[in-house]
Design a protein around this nucleic acid. Structure first.
Lengths: 207, 207
DNA sequence: CGCGTTCGATAGCAGCGCTATGCATAGCAC
DNA sequence: GTGCTATGCATAGCGCTGCTATCGAACGCG
């Protein structure tokens, strides 16, 4: 039958391709097949042996970006105040996006049909853990589970961020709106639970 | 000097080009120069005489899309409850985006260097008017001006929406998260004003 | 009517992602 | 060590992209 063993692909080439793509992205240049290959010191075929064409390469870049973001968030030192820590986490998230806007765009590219990379859930897990800690210390509005609260914080941050990156809102909107949004969303300043009226509760997505 | 008058460009061609582009977008097909020109029954040059190349055509499509969205929102009949009207407005916004996801993507394409089209501010103005009405009837959290509240509602909706469109959140997230987010953000269920602690107030965007 | 000016059609260019082909090489059998 | 095989990687080419140079035709005015 099959007697011999295939020649292994060079992992360094793969690494260099992802590096090159990320570098082009950070430099604001277009991430094109020939450019990436040239910058990685290889030929265009490497993108097809190591990845599944350009979409595969971009997916790898997103994977790495989410991994780095998760590390960055997990590296934040927790303080005595879990709510302040959530805010710091959000601030770090925004800071990372502003530092490399093109990378953030690719990470959440709406056209990316492929499901978000595995590392994305790791990033989200960091946020959920922070919310759970705040819940454990009774700092949040009751009746809101950690997963839902984390999702909402994420969506709010992402919403303001993308509008700023798209130029629809000025950069100052981040400082102006995100803090009060966070507060209104999750912090209970000593008062009780609230319920939404029925008119607010239905008719959003699936009609 | 100049004695004669230039031959006028046919406005119908321009119209047909925008139509064709929007139709391709709605059909999920790629909006390519030759496809648009063929669908509009003209040549590729029309895109350069009526617009400034493909980016210009796309800009025109966004302009039209924002205009239609503004009309759609303004057409909602106001009820006695301004807060419920705001919710209905948000629901209509989400419905429009879900009906034509590709169009919504183009409208808020983060790569669009050109500033958002003029019609976008008209769409936003409808939302601001709704919030102002709620403010006038004392239905909102005090200390929040209408412009800021409208911006936050917009950002929240846009955030959840884009995450859903990107596949990062299930479609059910719209129904699950947006209503409580709206409520937490703007409705005062009979209690007083709140203030964010200093730790939450700084360090977001511009550090 | 004739003129000037612009529209819009055609052809070609550089670049894109992708694939078919060819060669060199890494690993196993002996 | 030697031969074989399967794979990684390089090259060339295809069909497509947006864009531009060129040119004939249509229009409005004097």
């Amino acid at each position: 039958m099959l007697a011999t063993v295939p020649r292994p692909a060079d992992p360094a080439v793969r690494e260099r391709l992802v590096d090159a793509a990320a570098h082009l992205l950070a430099a604001g240049e277009e991430v094109a097949l020939r450019k990436v290959a040239a910058a990685a010191g290889t030929s265009t075929m490497g993108v097809y042996t190591h990845f599944d064409g350009m979409p595969g390469l971009v997916h790898a870049v997103r994977e790495r970006a989410f991994g780095l973001l998760a590390e960055r968030l997990a590296a934040l030192e927790p303080t005595a105040d879990p709510v302040a820590d959530l805010v710091a986490s959000g601030s770090a998230y925004v800071g990372a996006a502003l530092a490399e806007p093109a990378l953030y765009r690719v990470m959440f590219d709406i056209d990316a049909r492929g499901r978000p990379p595995a590392a994305a859930s790791m990033t989200f897990a960091v946020l959920v853990a922070g919310v759970e800690r705040a819940v454990a210390e009774d700092r949040l509005v009751p009746r809101t589970d950690a997963l839902a609260a984390a999702t909402r914080l994420w969506a709010m941050t992402h919403g303001v961020l993308t509008l700023v990156l798209a130029g629809a809102l000025p950069r100052a909107a981040l400082d102006e709106h995100l803090p009060p949004m966070y507060v209104a969303q999750l912090v209970a300043w000593g008062d009780g639970p609230r319920r939404a009226p029925a008119s607010v509760r239905r008719g959003w997505g699936t009609a």
